[in-house]
Amino acid sequence: MDNARSSPSLWKDAWRRLSRNRLAMLGLCVLTVMVSLALLTPWIAPYSYSAQDLDLGATPPSGAHWLGTDAFGRDLLTLILYGSRVSLAVGFLATAVALTIGVLWGTVSGYAGGRTDAVMMRTVDILYALPFTIFIILLMVIFGRNMFLLFMAIGAVEWLTMARIVRGQVLGIRRQEYIEAAIVMGLPRSRIMYRHVLPNVLGVIIIYTTLTIPNVILLESFLSFLGLGIQPPQSSWGLLISYGVETMEEYPWLLFFPAATLSLTLFSLNFLGDGLRDALDPRAATD
């Protein structure tokens, strides 16, 4: 961040505030562990993804299978680890799609102002009113349930809030004197946006990215739970939960552990998001 002199101390300040927030730090730790486990899964998973032991069948947690096994004798911990890769990948990739569209749309709209702004924001308003969850289901039915389509569709839904928030911020920044100075100096528009506008919106972008990821993970597991998202042989938290529900009377651990993993991740992301909001945007902390 070499854009402004106040910048380094701002980020240092924010980090100090964040590190004092114990819940947010706990969330950050849990997430770091979760993401590392997901990345390292092929090397650290106790069993191979396709390994099954039909003679063993479903067993409760034990020394050999820490989280137990399912009806096919598959190790639940291994299934959850591989499921994490899919759920987290959808979470991060769809958020990245949302982030890219939202930030571009919001910056251009807020910076251009006038007619362009009006048209672009009316588009967002109209899209906001569309029943997107239902649309995604329609898409999945028509074009088949494939993962790429799934995160494109989710990303295409989630960018709207980001666009609105970024636009609001850019509108405020545009009126600042240093932007006027940059315009008077004859800097090209793209350079002003990239060097002077975007870095100042970064805080808000980080906050809402952190808060978008849990929404995306929720949406994916919602669809997978209904059988309309991730399809076997791939695995995801939502899919594991829906399997767990089918046999929860006999094998409750098959529901508990995937559900706990999902909820723990959502907790961590939400606490981290709230913490980041308090740290980076003290004015909004009362909301």
């Binding site: 919602f222 929860m248 009377e249 559900a259 999902l262 959502l266 907790f267 939400n270």
Partner: peptide, 22 residues
């Protein structure tokens, strides 16, 4: 409230069914 937000209905529902119902 935080628990409510992090326990989606497809987790809360089955848990209630299992504990309260079964």
């Amino acid at each position: 409230a935080m628990i409510g937000i992090c326990l989606p209905s497809y987790v809360l529902g089955p848990l209630l069914v299992l504990i309260v119902g079964i």
